[in-house]
Design a protein around this nucleic acid. Structure first.
Lengths: 124, 124
DNA sequence: TGGCTTATTAGTAATGATAACTATTACTAA
DNA sequence: TTAGTAATAGTTATCATTACTAATAAGCCA
């Protein structure tokens, strides 16, 4: 656990929402001015491989990262791209019939909601 | 509807599965040898904007395209990357509770199953 | 503590998918 | 046939991400 890795994790936690690698980079840069983008990517990768953070591949835009490991889904705002959380408890099981009737062996799924965030709703 | 666009659409339909832009390009190239990659992208884009084809942003790998417009979901093989279809009828409604309880205005979702395709299952 | 081994870094260059640009060509309607 | 528009081929640019490399820092044992 190097200083760089520690600061990257701290800033990701502070960010709260779901920053991209670049947003993490810009935050960390304020504390370690000569940090390199490669270091940010490498550490976000390492942290997610150790199950400490989560990498979110959304259907649009670059990869995002999430320090929260609780089970939840994500909503992406189609106006501004912001990403929010949807507790898994709001989503009923929908996989069982697919598992039963599909000749593929289903191992998981990726679900992302599309919507308009509160901020963009009030803008209009 | 230019010759290029027509051939792109024909080859996409013939391809059956879910080719990437590059695969479409290679197929079309056999009939129009000097076609440009840009033309392929532009036309796949145009066709999908007109609702004639469907562009699939999978969570891994490049964009894929689908000539079938029936409502269905996709499974991606985690071994080989192949993409298959899952009829929408196998998936129960799971969105209503989210719509009701989330302060975002939900407009849709993107769902992708992960699994192992029949071919990779038998390989092992 | 000091030296040794290995991992990690900063910096830069490379990659791969996609989009933008530009001069040229094809299509269309008058 | 011609002006106007749209689409093309070819090329270059962009953006996110990964790979490479020499220098630096961690961790560990004597």
């Amino acid at each position: 656990m190097t200083r760089q890795r520690r600061v990257i994790l701290e800033e990701l936690k502070k960010a709260g929402s779901h920053p991209t690698a670049d947003e993490v980079y810009r935050r960390v840069q304020k504390r370690i001015p000569n940090i390199s983008m490669g270091t940010v990517y490498r550490n976000l990768e390492a942290l997610s491989e150790h199950g400490i953070i989560c990498r979110l591949q959304m259907s649009e835009g670059p990869m995002r990262f999430d320090a929260s490991m609780e089970k939840h889904y994500h909503v992406r705002c189609s106006k501004c791209g912001r990403v929010g959380d949807v507790p898994a408890s709001l989503v009923n099981n929908f996989e069982s019939k697919v598992r039963a009737e599909c000749e593929w062996q289903i191992t998981g799924h990726r679900l992302e909601f599309i919507g308009i965030c509160p901020r963009c709703q009030s803008k209009k």
